Deep mutational scan, measured.
Amino acid sequence: RQGFVPAAYVKKLDSGTGKELVLALYDYQEKSPREVTMKKGDILTLLNSTNKDWWKVEVN
């Protein structure tokens, strides 16, 4: 499932696989259909980080 999360809630990881991955630093509950819920410690695939406030991710 793809959607947006606050950029301040995730940290980029060095995956070494060519995929950009991020680590969820905090729990986040989606507040609109365009967002996704994540739990602290989740590893997500980063799809787009051009917006400084909201990053598009895919929940694996």
Rank of each mutant, 00 (worst) to 15 (best):
K31G: 08
M38F: 09
K31R: 15
V5W: 01
G3F: 08
D14P: 15
V57R: 00
K31L: 09
E30Q: 13
E58K: 08
N51E: 10
S49C: 11
N48F: 06
T50C: 09
I43G: 01
V59E: 09
G41D: 06
P6K: 03
L21T: 09
K39T: 09
R1V: 08
T17H: 14
L47C: 06
L23H: 05
P33E: 12
V57T: 01
A8Y: 11
E30K: 13
R34I: 12
K56V: 14
G3S: 02
K52R: 12
N48I: 08
K52F: 10
S49A: 14
N48K: 07
E20I: 15
E20M: 12
K12A: 07
V59A: 13
V5F: 00
W54I: 03
T50P: 03
V59F: 09
R34A: 13
T37H: 05
L23R: 09
R34S: 14
W55M: 04
V57E: 00
E35I: 03
A7F: 02
W55N: 01
V22G: 13
G16W: 11
W54C: 06
T37N: 07
V10P: 00
E30G: 15
L46V: 06
Q29Y: 15
A7I: 03
E35M: 05
L47F: 03
E58V: 07
L13W: 08
G16E: 12
K40L: 05
A24K: 00
D42A: 07
P6R: 04
Q29F: 13
L21C: 10
G16H: 14
L44H: 03
F4R: 03
V22L: 08
F4K: 03
S32L: 06
E35C: 07
N48A: 09
S49P: 06
L21E: 08
R34E: 12
R1E: 05
Q2V: 14
K56L: 15
E58W: 06
V57G: 00
P33N: 10
A8F: 09
A24E: 00
L44M: 14
G41P: 00
Y26Q: 14
Q29C: 11
V5P: 01
G18V: 10
L21R: 10
K56M: 15
N60Y: 14
T37L: 03
W54Q: 02
V10C: 13
T17I: 14
I43T: 06
D42F: 04
M38V: 10
G18C: 13
G18M: 10
P33A: 12
Q2G: 06
Y9Q: 05
K19F: 10
T50S: 15
F4A: 02
N48S: 12
N48W: 07
E35R: 04
R1T: 08
V10R: 00
P6E: 01
E30W: 06
S32M: 07
K56I: 14
Y26M: 13
F4G: 01
L13S: 04
K12S: 05
W54M: 06
L25R: 05
K31W: 04
T37R: 07
K56P: 01
Y9M: 12
N48P: 02
L21P: 02
T17P: 14
S15K: 11
F4C: 11
L25F: 03
D27M: 03
D14N: 14
W54H: 02
K11C: 13
V57C: 03
W54L: 03
K19Q: 12
N51Q: 09
N48R: 06
V10E: 00
V22P: 00
M38G: 01
D42C: 06
K39A: 08
V59Y: 10
G18R: 10
P6G: 02
K52L: 10
P6D: 01
Q29L: 13
L25S: 02
Y9F: 13
L25I: 10
M38N: 00
Y28V: 01
L25W: 03
G3K: 03
A7C: 07
K11V: 15
A7G: 04
E20T: 13
Y28T: 00
V22C: 11
G18K: 12
K39N: 08
L25M: 09
D42G: 03
N48T: 07
E35F: 06
V22D: 01
Y28C: 02
G41T: 02
D53W: 15
V5D: 01
W55H: 02
L44E: 00
A7H: 03
V36L: 15
E20D: 14
F4L: 09
E58S: 08
R1A: 08
I43L: 08
T17W: 12
L13I: 15
W55P: 01
M38Y: 01
W54F: 07
L47Y: 03
P6L: 04
G3E: 02
R1N: 08
E58H: 05
E20K: 13
S32H: 12
D53F: 15
L23G: 03
E20A: 15
K56R: 11
L13F: 11
D14H: 13
Y26T: 08
K40F: 05
T45L: 15
A7Y: 03
Y9I: 06
S49V: 07
K52Y: 08
G18N: 12
E20F: 11
G3Y: 04
A8P: 07
Q29P: 06
T17K: 11
S49R: 09
L13A: 04
K19S: 10
